[in-house]
């Protein structure tokens, strides 16, 4: 099916009738997903957003429950099941949701905060047409033209968007948009990344045996230990739990944390098993390229290139991959 680009706003209006629709937009100079305002034009092409849409399903600060202490303790869970649509999410960010699903929904534990949002979200993905010089998703086993776990996959078809439903939720979307759709459409599906990285199938296991390799002394030194790489990463899912306390009552919330912070592994008593940037950067690279693969059979780096683009020290996970493949 195809949708004329001139009908895009009309389509978004239909979707926005009973859900919050998030689209690629810009706030104060930063390209990110924004709540569609009901009228603005949406640009689905160009570079991917600078920030991933991760916080729609996994907010950077999320209230969990309110408490009140008196003769007894009162706890009131905060349950939110917003109906949301992420419109125009790219294949790399779609794969990151796949990674999050593994972490938050599988292996015998379901994270209810995540699952409530996940069940109620509709994911309408958009194939990439103009990869950035830092994009390397196809080296990580992805296809920039396709997101298999999307509800609806869209691809550029010149004057139209070519739509295909992959799930029941997706079929419902196409039905709702039926009046605006027509048969046919030639989708452009030949996008390839220019940056090619030597991510060999053996690397995850090879890295597992390189914990004490001298390579870590070299590749970690430029790091300044900020959390930029982890906070712009679509797949970093660590969080901390804290409270906003006012006398005898307050709110428990969780918020993103970063393994690059010096206090991340600090224990009560002061011992820190990852005392310097060497151990911290090693952990990040290992988690992205080896540990996660061992547990879930896929990479935790989806090749979006955001950390490469934003690292203040110009550290580059792709250079590390190439180097590690060679040694």
């Amino acid at each position: 099916m195809q949708l004329k680009k001139t009908d895009l706003t009309g389509a978004l209006k239909i979707l926005a009738a009973d859900a919050s629709v998030f689209v690629p937009g810009e706030i104060e100079g930063i390209k990110r997903f924004v709540l569609w305002d009901g009228e603005s034009d949406v640009d689905l092409g160009g570079a991917n957003t600078q920030l991933p849409p991760k916080d729609i399903l996994f907010p950077c600060t999320e209230k969990m429950y309110n408490y009140k202490m008196g003769d007894s303790i009162e706890i009131k869970e905060i349950v939110e099941k917003p109906r949301q649509v992420i419109f125009g999410i790219r294949p790399c960010d779609m794969r990151s949701i796949d990674c999050m699903d593994h972490v938050f929904l599988e292996k015998g534990f379901v994270d209810s905060y995540y699952s409530r949002k996940r069940e109620n979200v509709t994911l309408i993905a958009m194939g990439c047409t103009t990869p950035e010089r830092t994009c390397f998703c196809d080296s990580m086993g992805l296809d920039p033209n396709n997101a298999p776990n999307a509800d609806v996959m869209m691809n550029d078809g010149g004057d139209t968007l070519v739509l295909e439903a992959y799930t029941e939720k997706g079929k419902a979307v196409l039905e709702a948009l039926n009046g605006l759709l027509s048969e046919g459409g030639q989708a452009k599906k030949d996008t390839a990344c220019t940056l090619k990285v030597n991510m060999t199938p053996e690397l995850p296991e090879k890295l597992a045996g390189m914990f004490d390799h001298p390579i870590w002394d070299e590749v970690t030194r430029a790091c300044i230990g900020c959390a930029t790489c982890t906070y712009v990463c679509p797949t970093c899912y660590c969080f901390d739990i804290d409270s906003d306390n006012h006398g005898a009552e307050g709110t428990k919330f969780r918020c993103w944390d970063s393994c690059m912070f010096s206090d991340y592994t600090r224990m009560a008593g002061g011992h820190d098993p990852r005392p310097t940037k060497k151990e911290r950067v090693r952990n990040r690279y290992m988690h992205k390229l080896s540990y996660f693969h061992e547990r879930y059979g896929q990479h935790l780096c989806v090749g979006c290139g955001r950390c490469v683009e934003k690292c203040p020290a110009h550290m580059d996970i792709t250079m590390f991959i190439d180097k590690a493949a060679e040694v």
């Binding site: 920030l51 300044i224 959390a227 930029t228 906070y231 912070f261």
Partner: peptide, 11 residues
């Protein structure tokens, strides 16, 4: 917009 990365401090 600030994401609390503390890059401004660390650098």
């Amino acid at each position: 917009k600030c994401i609390h990365c503390y890059a401004c401090r660390n650098v």
